[in-house]
């Protein structure tokens, strides 16, 4: 390895070296452009409210202060939202992963009766849908409007995840394995439990992560199906406070006008951090799985 790179260095022409330098420069710029807004927001969330509103924060925190976060924890809407989001994420992920495996595994078996048409049946929903209103009417008919189930069930299966899982099962659990177990007198359920699931840990990790992040970040279903504020997930609370600029009610009455405005402004940065940090902290450790999942998915099956 070392000798190979050394010999490459010798052969590298001036043009190539220039080219490579340009590549490094551009990539460094990309790095900066992506990273800067994130750092800026994090810094703003832990600077003093006065520094944020007078525009003195450029890169690093100014006058370190955690007032924004303190205020956040005293805001009931935010805490309820956080709790709700946790519930939706955990419950939604369990339901989604279970359903996805239940459809993806049979579809991966060549012995399945009517496998081709079934696959069509599933993938067709990817390219054509009844639309927003007809779907809404179905959810309404089922009486799911304004209930937690509305966020867990109607969007439980993503076809893309089914495709990814199916390709995985197809390539890593050969039919011969099933035959061998059948000869040994193993039931289908037992086979699922003691052979398929233990062998499928990587794909299960991918499914769990994708669905969990999706649930945590979702807001559209909550927007159209929920009416009771107590059921709102964090993203909806966020939208109301930051985008619609409704300052979190009743939290800061005792404070002076100016201070209140400053804090309301800074609260927004803290909120963004609180809503995004869980995902971004876990992400570097699980990036491997995400990439893996995408690679499996890009193999045409």
């Amino acid at each position: 390895m070392a000798t190979a790179s050394a010999s490459k260095k010798i052969r590298e022409s001036a043009g190539d070296r220039f080219f490579l330098a340009a590549v490094y420069t551009i990539l460094s710029l990309v790095l900066l452009v992506v990273l800067y807004p994130l750092v800026y927001i994090l810094s703003s969330s832990i600077s003093s409210p006065a520094a944020v509103t007078s525009g003195r924060v450029w890169l690093w925190p100014v006058n370190l202060s955690f007032k924004g976060f303190e205020a956040l924890f005293r805001t009931p809407e935010v805490m309820t939202g956080y709790g709700n989001s946790l519930i939706y994420t955990v419950a939604g992920t369990i339901i989604s992963v279970a359903l996805t495996v239940m459809i993806a595994y049979p579809l991966s078996r060549k012995s399945l009766f009517g496998r081709g048409p079934l696959m069509m049946f599933v993938t067709f929903t990817m390219i054509f849908s009844g639309g927003l209103i007809p779907t809404y009417m179905v959810v309404k008919e089922l009486g799911l409007i304004d209930s937690r189930w509305a966020l867990l069930i109607p969007n439980a299966i993503w076809v893309w995840q089914v495709i990814i899982a199916r390709s995985f099962f197809q390539s890593s659990i050969p039919d011969e394995l099933l035959e061998a177990s059948e000869i040994d007198g193993c039931s289908d359920l037992r086979f699922m439990r003691s052979v398929v699931l233990p062998l499928s840990k990587p794909i299960l990790a991918v499914l769990v992560l994708m669905y969990a992040v999706g649930q945590w970040n979702a807001y559209f279903d909550a927007l159209i199906y929920l009416k009771t504020a107590n059921l709102f997930p964090l993203q909806l609370v966020l939208r109301s406070i930051i985008i619609q600029n409704n300052s979190a009610g009743g939290l800061m009455d005792a404070m002076k006008m100016v201070e209140r405005q400053q804090l309301a402004e800074q609260l927004k940065y803290s909120l963004i951090v609180v809503a995004t940090l869980p995902v971004l902290i876990i992400y570097p450790f699980v990036q491997r799985y995400f990439v893996q999942g995408m690679l499996v998915g890009s193999v045409k099956g």
Binding site: V34, L38, N217, Y219, R239, I242, I272, L280
Partner: peptide, 17 residues
């Protein structure tokens, strides 16, 4: 790692930013 990260930011947070 860094360029992949914004993918995990929710739409609401993205618009907020």
């Amino acid at each position: 790692l860094v360029s992949f990260a914004p993918y995990f930011i929710s739409t609401v947070v993205m618009v907020s930013i």
